[in-house]
Design a protein around this nucleic acid. Structure first.
Length: 640
RNA sequence: GCCACUGUAGCUCAGUCGGUAGAGCAACUGAUUCGUAAUCAGUAGGUCAGCGGUUCAAUUCCGCUCAGUGGCUCCA
């Protein structure tokens, strides 16, 4: 006699076990028609799921956000059915719902073509029209293996082998097609809203393992209705406009070319931005008690062998040689910073010692991983290494976290993803040290009450790390900041200090960066603002526009005055109409446009317009300077 | 690195079922001196990514290389 409690607090009692569908029908015919699935606790279940105990139940309809994963997972199944109907011999593997859509990985000798996507999509629509009932069946393991093996579905057999013995082997059948799947699913294929679209083809390794076969992945998106689909596709289009590679070109910031893959040619405006960002960090680090140092670009290979990098990353280190010696073009700064630390005897009074460097590093990243400014082969990090005692770890990590958030806030980023990565399989240092290191980082996160995600096994080979990531315009996640604990490297490279008890001790080293690579950070920055940077960051802050030749002197005078006050201003004296100039500077995302005509010259004033089109009226030079100073001082906190 | 796709003027793109290419914007020249998102006219601009093959003929078909794009793997 199950007692079913509904979200509104009401409850119904049933004589015998009932299915979710029966509960819906019991409430009303409208709900029975609309119901797609049920939710028991956190678990989504099929409409056919039988409830035999007292429980709370939520019925899911297409009004609920919770219906989305269900819809997407069904879209994946229906796509798989369509593919197998159209391309016999194709093996199915896995096909989950993901953020905004779904994918399915197939094994097939021939490659799918972009044209195939349209065919598959058409067949999916047909399968929806067939309105096939979707039924869950529980199979015996041996029977399941035999059936899938008989169909030549070797990947599925491998999946069955990995289902824990206490879990049922469930199969979902729609028409004469079926797939091994945990579920849940919609009751009929006809319930899948025709608001899906196949988007792209991609390769993917079976089980995410580069040593195993490459499968063909088809990505799609699916929504509750056509309106949502349209909105999503529009969102993708808009995201494309924010792409930093596109902005880099249209705003004349940087370019890349074949002869230097993964390396950036910074143009004047882009380099201005780069330097502004760098100056800001340089100033901030000084204030926080860091010393700035600068170390060689080339270091003998023995140093990298000693540090362990040569063994682990040898094939990604660019090298050069001279007079029978091999040099690494440095892929990172830390061994060099240890050399500075090692100069002269260090006392515990000098700790924590914080060495910062904007060191240009080269890493021979695999060609397929390069991506605009986000993943490059030559980059500069706002890198620093803190040498300290074990007791100083926690306060240093806390101070770093606080600094990082204050910096991100100044740049306008408040939505930060935090991940704690712990010991990997391939590592140096004993487990007692790893325990200590991981606990220290976790404790810092907890003290600051931050939300974080654990990534077991993802730490660096010398220590655990916290990663701070942001998303780009297409929601791809990129790591920017990091703090990594390292008990190994200082010892390997022979760093030590004299402790209070007059013994020689090995310092702990913290590797840390706030922005990470300046290149990547600028990429994220551009996408975040769609190129319309806050005034303090804009390469050109003010464009002074002359209406006619007779206004040139005053225009030039204003521009000079602005420059004298450290604003980045440019005079536009071209023989063009105002409208044309306004349009150009607006498209160039210049925050302030000043228009100079007869009125301004006569009254010694300036007509001020913001790039968004707002008119700030007629200001005196002093009033303008005050306004600009306030805007710049505000950083990204609330301007725009 | 792996899978797929793409590479035409400075930019955005069209085009050739094989007969050496075209638009808009930008550039240049001239006219215009203009009040808040495109003034008008004219001119010039391309070994169709590179190399090789097939062919009477290749930018177009095929192969290789390079680079880019989307994923996957990797990321000290």
């Amino acid at each position: 006699m199950p007692l079913i409690t509904l979200p509104d607090g009401s409850s119904r009692i049933f004589e015998q076990p009932v299915s979710v569908a029966q509960v819906a029908a019991n409430i009303g015919p409208g709900l029975a028609r609309a119901a797609l699935a049920g939710q028991v606790g956190d678990m989504l279940v099929d409409l056919s799921h039988v409830l035999d105990q007292d429980t709370a139940l939520t019925l899911i309809t297409d009004k609920d956000e919770a219906a989305l994963p269900l819809i997407r997972h069904d879209a994946a199944h229906i796509m798989a059915q369509a593919v197998q109907e159209l391309f016999p011999g194709t093996q199915v593997t896995i096909g989950p719902a993901i953020e905004d859509g779904f994918y399915y990985d197939f094994a097939r000798d021939k490659a799918f073509t972009p044209d195939d996507l349209a065919l598959i999509e058409a067949r999916m629509n047909e399968i929806v029209d067939r309105d096939l009932p979707i039924q869950r069946e529980i199979w015996d393991v041996a029977q399941a293996k035999q059936t899938f093996a008989g169909l030549g579905e070797h990947f599925k057999v491998e999946l069955i082998d990995q289902i824990p013995p206490d879990e049922p082997v469930s199969v979902y059948r729609q028409g004469n097609w079926f797939d091994l799947c945990r579920g849940p699913h919609l009751p009929n294929t006809g319930r899948l809203p025709k608001a899906f679209k196949l988007l792209k083809l991609a390769g993917s390794y079976w089980r995410g393992d580069a040593g195993r076969p490459m499968l063909q992945r088809i990505y799609g998106t699916a929504w509750r209705n056509k309106k949502e689909l349209k909105a999503y596709l529009h969102r993708l289009q808009e995201a494309e406009k924010r792409d930093h590679r596109k902005l880099g070109k249209t705003l004349d910031l940087f370019h890349t070319q074949e002869q230097a893959p993964g390396m950036v040619f910074w143009h004047d405006k882009g380099w201005q931005l780069y330097l502004i960002v760098q100056d800001y960090i340089r100033r901030t680090l000084r204030e926080q008690g860091y010393q700035e140092v600068h170390t060689p670009q080339l270091l003998d290979r023995s140093l990298w062998e000693q540090s362990g990098h040569w063994e682990k990353f040898g094939d990604m280190i660019f090298t050069t040689h001279s007079e029978h010696r091999d040099y690494a073009i440095k892929p990172m700064n830390c061994p060099a910073h240890i050399q500075i630390f090692k100069q002269g005897l260090k006392s515990h009074h000098q700790l924590p010692l914080r060495l910062a460097e904007f060191g240009s590093c080269h890493r021979n990243e695999p060609s397929g991983t390069l991506h605009g400014l986000m993943r490059v082969r030559n980059f500069v990090q706002d890198d620093a290494h803190i040498f300290c005692t074990e007791q100083q770890i926690l306060p240093e990590v806390l101070a770093f976290i606080d600094l990082l958030f204050s910096v991100y806030h100044d740049f306008g980023f408040d939505d930060v993803l935090i991940r704690l990565s712990t010991r990997p399989n391939q590592r140096v240092g004993d487990d007692a040290l790893w325990d200590k290191a991981e606990q220290a980082l976790q404790q810092a996160l907890e003290q600051r009450q931050l939300d974080w995600e654990l990534q077991p096994g993802e730490g660096a080979f010398y220590g655990p790390k916290i990663e701070f990531s942001l998303r780009d315009c297409l929601q791809r996640v990129w790591q920017l900041g990091t703090i990594q604990l390292d008990f190994a490297m200082p010892a390997r490279l022979g760093a030590s200090y004299i402790a209070a008890d007059n013994t020689k001790q090995v310092p702990v080293m913290l590797h840390r960066a706030i922005l990470g690579s300046l290149e990547r950070f600028i990429g994220i920055l551009l996408e975040h603002y769609a190129g319309a940077l806050p005034t303090w960051l804009a390469p050109v802050q003010v464009a002074v526009i002359a209406i006619a030749d007779r206004h040139h002197t005053y225009t030039q005078h204003l521009t000079d005055e602005l420059r004298k006050h450290d604003f980045r201003a440019t005079a536009d004296l071209r023989n063009e109409k105002v409208g044309f100039k306004i349009r150009e500077h607006t498209l160039a995302r210049v925050p302030y446009l000043l228009v100079v005509g007869d009125h301004e010259v006569n009254e010694r004033c300036i007509a001020v317009r913001r790039r968004e089109g707002t008119d700030l009226g007629s200001l005196s030079l002093n009033a303008l300077l005050t306004h600009l100073q306030a805007d710049v001082a505000d950083l990204a906190r609330q301007s725009d």
